[in-house]
Amino acid sequence: MRFAHRHLLGIEHLSQSDITAILDLAETYVELNRQSAKHSDVLAGLTQINMFFENSTRTQASFELAGKRLGADVMNMAMQASSIKKGETLIDTAMTLNAMHPDLLVVRHPQSGAVDLLAQKVNCAVLNAGDGRHEHPTQALLDALTIRRAKGRLHRLSIAICGDVAHSRVARSNLILLGKMENRIRLIGPPTLVPPHFREFGAEVFDDMREGLRDVDVVMMLRLQRERMDGGFIPSEREYYHRFGLDNEKLALARPDAIVMHPGPMNRGVEIDGTLADDINRSVIQEQVEMGVAVRMAAMELLARNLRSEAA
């Protein structure tokens, strides 16, 4: 199977078969990760640099673990504390790193499009670990794998994405991926956070959560950023929780076997009820974290294969 991409910048560029290929390969890594000997050497000799221009614990740890389990030399650079503060431009930083000959560059940046820009300037494979409010492709892929394993398929499902869609790269990547795989998507949230023109992507838009959740197979919650809570987009945390927080009562309107997802980190009592988040019969939130490592291993392996065949 050929994965005809140099970088993983977004779901936008992937085809159905690309997505399936990543998920299929990730399945094998799920098995590997559950064994006591978790090592493979498919990235042996390759250098992976994680550049995070924005705080991240979970995603960075997941990428780091994925690289290490595949035998890559992994380096983390906390860009927030580094040269960018001294006025160096993104391009200069990229050129500097490029001179160190990394093979895989994992980048998170607060600006939409910044990772695309960086990818144009370096010789290695670039993985987007989240750019502004644009895309977060590995998150969408791990969500897809989680859904496929829980539901037995990744098509013809009714999936609700709830919360701050407007500012969420997770929502965008999921919307694109789940759309490509031919699912019905519902976006739920107040109109300040779910602009109506998202209908143009083929999604249904609801500002009544109860109506939106009716008979869905998957409920995907989004994190509400703290800075959006005070009066600007929603009146208050408690009104938001009342209208758009997921609890058992609202979830009862979904299909009885509907699963609950959240990309983390969660605001318990803001967008999701704490007990529900921990309910192992409904919540697959821990599984999502597990799938994250496997999906990132798969994505890096596919990109590394291309690197090696280029070099050969």
Binding site: E12, G113, H134, P195
Partner: peptide, 11 residues
């Protein structure tokens, strides 16, 4: 300009 394009590109 707000619309599908800006939404897709997260601008």
């Amino acid at each position: 300009t707000s619309g599908k394009f800006a939404s897709l590109y997260g601008l």
